[in-house]
Design a protein around this nucleic acid. Structure first.
Length: 201
DNA sequence: CTAACGATTCGCT
DNA sequence: GCGAATCGTTAGT
């Protein structure tokens, strides 16, 4: 393991599903307001711009919001969901492909006290950081950090100690995208089969 | 300009 | 298990 940030070459690979799989076990870190908070990524979902009806940027849909996904890999795509929750995604692939990985859950590491404070909670349990809206609140991530580079000092991802093989990961349907018709069935959601830090089983 | 709708969470029954 | 909360984005008039 190292404490180095993942390099741009990691984010700019062209298989977003494989990147989503590899991101499970990596460590998502933020330093927002001077305090380091971090957690092991325990659940991800892949969204593919070119041929995925669940993706905001599917079929070349290019709008003000989705412009972020069309940038080169290695930055944050953060948007407001249901008018309440800020969801954190990692833009992948090269410019104009519009691929991204949604981070749906983390297991807390550093800064647990601040995470509890931000969430208005008192115990470190899955409700603290398991869920795409929950983890962003715990880490201090909001829509204002959209297009933030993951090579910077506010939000980044490091190598973790865990290294999951394919048979230790569950690959299943993505959550909350029933509107995506046949693409709703794609097994593009990943989590470790023994982890309790999962948004839904 | 208007209206419908979320890549969700929480509280209450 | 069900429904409310809450507002930016999007597509259509």
């Amino acid at each position: 393991m190292s404490n180095d940030k993942l390099p741009l070459s990691f984010y700019r690979q062209d298989d977003v599903v494989n990147i989503a799989r590899q991101l499970v076990g990596k460590v998502l870190c933020t330093r927002i307001g001077d305090t380091l908070t971090s957690g092991i990524i325990t659940e991800t979902e892949a969204y593919c711009g070119r041929n995925d009806k669940a993706c905001h940027a599917h079929a070349g849909t290019r709008t003000e919001r989705t412009e972020t996904m069309y940038q080169g890999g290695g930055m944050a795509y953060i948007y407001l969901c249901y008018g309440i929750h800020h969801l954190f995604n990692i833009v992948t692939n090269v410019e104009d492909q519009a691929d991204a990985v949604l981070v749906r859950a983390i297991e807390p590491l550093n800064g647990q006290q601040l995470m509890l404070q931000r969430r208005g909670s008192t115990e470190v349990a899955p409700t603290l950081t398991a869920g795409p809206g929950r983890l962003t609140e715990a880490l201090g991530i909001s829509r204002g950090y959209d297009q933030t580079s993951l090579q910077g000092e506010q939000i980044w991802i490091e190598e973790g100690e865990a290294d999951f093989s394919d048979d230790e990961l569950v690959a299943t349907q993505r959550v909350g995208i029933e509107y995506a018709e046949e693409d709703a069935e794609l097994p593009w959601r990943f989590y470790p089969n023994e982890s309790r830090w999962i948004s839904k089983k």
